[in-house]
């Protein structure tokens, strides 16, 4: 999972660079670029939080009965609150942050993870065949 997250994070940073260049170079697209950049950062933070909570909740499944720490949920409220905060900023300051761009940016990281996992699985399967 760490290798997959590393490659997904690398791709996310590769997507973040053009948005920052567009923010600096294209003044009329500045709000769209900032919305996309903040959405990408929010989705990356959500992905890291989800990774941590998945590890915590599955670790508790293999622990012994007496030492088991109870974990409830996967932190869904935290992730909703992150995206909602970004959406509220976009709603309050539409000339600084474009709201549709922020929402699109906040949906990117799970699909990057899906593509990274697919490529990782194909590589692993091909490496075993010789």
């Amino acid at each position: 999972m760490d290798k997959m997250m590393k490659s997904a994070t690398r791709w996310m940073l590769c997507l973040l660079v053009p948005t920052l260049i567009a923010y600096a170079a294209l003044p009329q697209w500045r709000s769209v670029a900032l919305g996309l950049a903040l959405g990408l950062l929010a989705s990356a933070m959500n992905a890291f939080l989800l990774q941590r909570r998945v590890v915590m909740s599955t670790e508790s499944a293999v622990q012994q009965e007496g030492t088991r720490t109870r974990r409830k949920g996967l932190g869904f409220g935290n992730r909703i609150a992150t995206v909602l905060l970004l959406a509220m900023f976009g709603y309050r300051y539409p000339d600084i942050i474009n709201l549709p761009a922020a929402l699109v940016g906040s949906m990117v990281m799970p699909f990057l993870i899906l593509v990274a996992a697919f490529i990782h699985t194909v590589k692993e399967n091909n490496s075993g065949k010789g």
Binding site: M1, M4, A47, L50, Q51, V54, V55, T58, L74, M109, P110, F111, I113, L114, A117
Partner: peptide, 10 residues
């Protein structure tokens, strides 16, 4: 864990 992470994320 990896499968669960991908599924929950999507």
């Amino acid at each position: 864990q990896t499968t669960m992470f991908i599924g929950a994320g999507i």
